[in-house]
């Protein structure tokens, strides 16, 4: 992933400001992601990490700046058009659909034709069915496929949502705190899941758990008060006095 030629660039967040009536959750923030890269974003509570995801998927609209995905400006597109370009996001609070079965949750995500009149049927194409089975397998929920997603344990819900995001086939995955509420064993498993993607997808991971970040062994971007603060390897970021002062100093 060295030598980032222009053609490797998949996402570019360019001087974005998100203004909540005077309060800038993102303040001229910029960041670039290369195709196939895994990037971790850390920062104290309220640093603007979730807002960054919100901006990329079109939940909030920047007052200044641009978001460019695969060479196309996407920050004015409707949400479903952004997803159709190949971006999907896991929410910070698990966003599984509680009254649907685990399988139906995944089938909804794996569906390629999302127009309403194409939903008037019960059959699922073989490739989508296979994608669902694979997704179930990958997060170890095969034996839970028929239960309502709302009855899953917290960690299982997180996995299900990660699997849903993966099943959409999106090229860029935004994972907002995928290990929140997980124990150490579950956290390791989540790291393996993300590492298992290899370089087939571009992944942006937000997390507070530094042991998880270490397992991912990916470059880290540090945010503070809506601004870029530092970037480097986990070790570099850990050793940085400025980062320690605003973030790691409090938690480590």
């Amino acid at each position: 992933m060295s030598g980032s030629a222009i053609s490797d660039l998949i996402l570019s967040v360019d001087g974005v400001t998100i203004d909540y009536s005077g309060f800038k959750a993102l303040d001229g923030f910029s960041m670039r992601l290369n195709r196939g890269e895994t990037r971790v974003v850390i920062g104290p509570n309220g640093a603007g990490k979730s807002t960054l995801c919100d901006t990329i998927i079109g939940r909030v609209r920047p007052s200044t700046g641009r978001v460019i995905f695969k060479g196309e400006e996407i920050h004015r597109l409707p949400e479903q058009a952004i997803v159709a370009r190949g971006i999907c996001r896991k929410f910070q609070a698990p966003g599984v659909l509680p009254t649907l079965s685990v399988r139906d949750n995944l089938a909804l995500a794996a569906r390629r034709d999302r127009r309403w009149w194409k939903s008037l049927g019960t059959g699922i194409p073989a490739d989508e069915r296979a994608a669902v089975d694979e997704a179930l397998e990958s997060v170890g929920l095969t034996h839970r496929a028929t239960v309502e997603a709302g009855t899953l344990a917290h960690g299982e819900k997180q996995w299900l949502e990660i699997a849903m995001v993966m099943a959409t086939g999106a090229e860029l995955l935004l994972l907002d705190e995928p290990t929140a509420g997980m124990g150490p064993a579950e956290t390791s498993r989540t790291a393996e899941l993300i590492l298992g993607l290899g370089h087939s997808r571009t992944v942006l991971v937000i997390d507070h758990d530094m042991s998880f970040v270490e397992q991912l062994a990916a470059p880290v971007t540090v945010m503070h008060q809506g601004k870029f603060l530092k970037q480097g390897s986990v070790a570099e970021v850990r050793a940085d006095p400025e980062v320690a002062a605003v973030y790691l100093g409090h938690t480590a």
Binding site: Q80, G95, L108
Partner: peptide
């Protein structure tokens, strides 16, 4: 049908459905 499934999905999590790419 899938229509019914999506209707229930949108009832329980309209944002999740939207950000799976459905309108």
């Amino acid at each position: 049908s899938r229509f019914g499934i999506l209707l229930r999905a949108a009832r329980d999590g309209e944002n999740r459905v939207r950000f799976l790419g459905y309108n």
